[in-house]
């Protein structure tokens, strides 16, 4: 089995702050890899480094056996990967079809191929009826779906998805999950970050958990199941406990007093007698 993603001592510092700290990743081809971590743990920074958008302070990265920070090899990598970046990188003043056409042309796809794939992708993402709407008029979920469609358009060997299910409705989410599962089953690789344990648990074959920039767990879900451990319990066990963390609100300890008492010193609310 070949290796799709490999990092050694991957580190990124922003000033004094270490966002990613000596991460050693190894993702085999044909793997559905879930990259988990609390907010600010370094997931997006790692994905940026893996896709060549951010240079590491130290360490090495290999994507499909190539170096994303070598100018010549970077283009070859970009031809073979699809990315849903954190900020989505859409153009506000394009329609969905125009954006897909643009991406297809940048990947040097044939016109007919672009058209056929765009039709299918737009139908799959339920965006086919929005042909006159500009991206700026889309909801966040629709934008996510369009970015995902654009990432899948060139039929890449490796997909990087930064929070792909965030803001996506349940129906579309199911369709996307099925599509991604099919994508992996034919031998491609998916590397996704997500907060939704249930999605990761259902889709992924392997998971990595990052906390405070450090990769604290890298395992297959198969092993977790053998140990009778759910992903959520494993995740909470590793990163869920914080010393001195506030776990409840002081004013919620007491039963709420009557509305009259509560409103005693409050303002009268919206004026009713105002002209």
């Amino acid at each position: 089995m070949t290796i799709a993603i490999e990092t050694h001592g991957l580190t990124r510092q922003f000033g004094d702050q270490t966002a990613v700290d000596h991460v050693d990743l190894q993702v085999n081809t044909g793997t559905f890899y879930g990259f988990l971590g609390p907010n600010g743990a370094g997931k997006s920074t790692t994905i940026k480094m893996l896709t060549g958008l951010l240079a590491p302070t130290s360490g090495a990265v290999g994507i499909l056996g190539l170096n994303p920070f070598d100018t010549d090899q970077a283009i070859e990598i970009k031809r073979r990967i699809g990315v849903v970046p954190e900020n989505l990188s859409l153009f506000d003043n394009l329609t969905a079809r125009e954006y897909l056409t643009f991406v297809g042309r940048m990947f040097l796809l044939e016109k007919t191929v672009i058209q056929q794939r765009s039709d299918e992708l737009l139908a799959l993402m339920q965006l086919e009826n929005e042909h006159k709407k500009l991206t700026l008029e889309y909801s966040h979920g629709m934008k996510k779906k369009l970015a995902l469609a654009a990432a899948m358009l060139p039929n890449p060997d490796l997909l990087f998805l930064d929070e792909p299910f965030e803001g996506v409705d349940a129906v579309a989410s199911k369709v996307i999950r099925n599509t991604l599962a099919e994508f992996v089953s034919r031998g491609s690789t998916v590397f996704l970050t997500s907060h939704v344990m249930e999605v990761v648990e259902r889709l992924c074959t392997h998971v990595g958990i990052i906390s405070a920039g450090k990769l604290v767990q890298q395992t297959s879900l198969e092993i977790l199941k053998q140990n009778n451990q759910s992903l959520e319990s494993c995740f909470l066990e590793i990163v869920g406990k914080r010393e001195g963390a506030v776990e409840t609100l002081s004013w919620l300890d007491h039963k709420k007093s009557s509305p009259e008492d509560a409103n005693d010193d409050s303002q009268p609310g919206l004026e009713s007698s105002q002209p």
């Binding site: 896709t51 060549g52 958008l53 100018t71 283009i75 970009k78 031809r79 990315v83 970046p85 900020n87 990188s89 153009f91 991406v103 940048m106 990947f107 040097l108």
Partner: peptide, 11 residues
């Protein structure tokens, strides 16, 4: 450039 960097375009 950030809109293009994840696409296969040479520097």
């Amino acid at each position: 450039l950030d809109k293009f960097l994840h696409l296969p375009i040479s520097p």
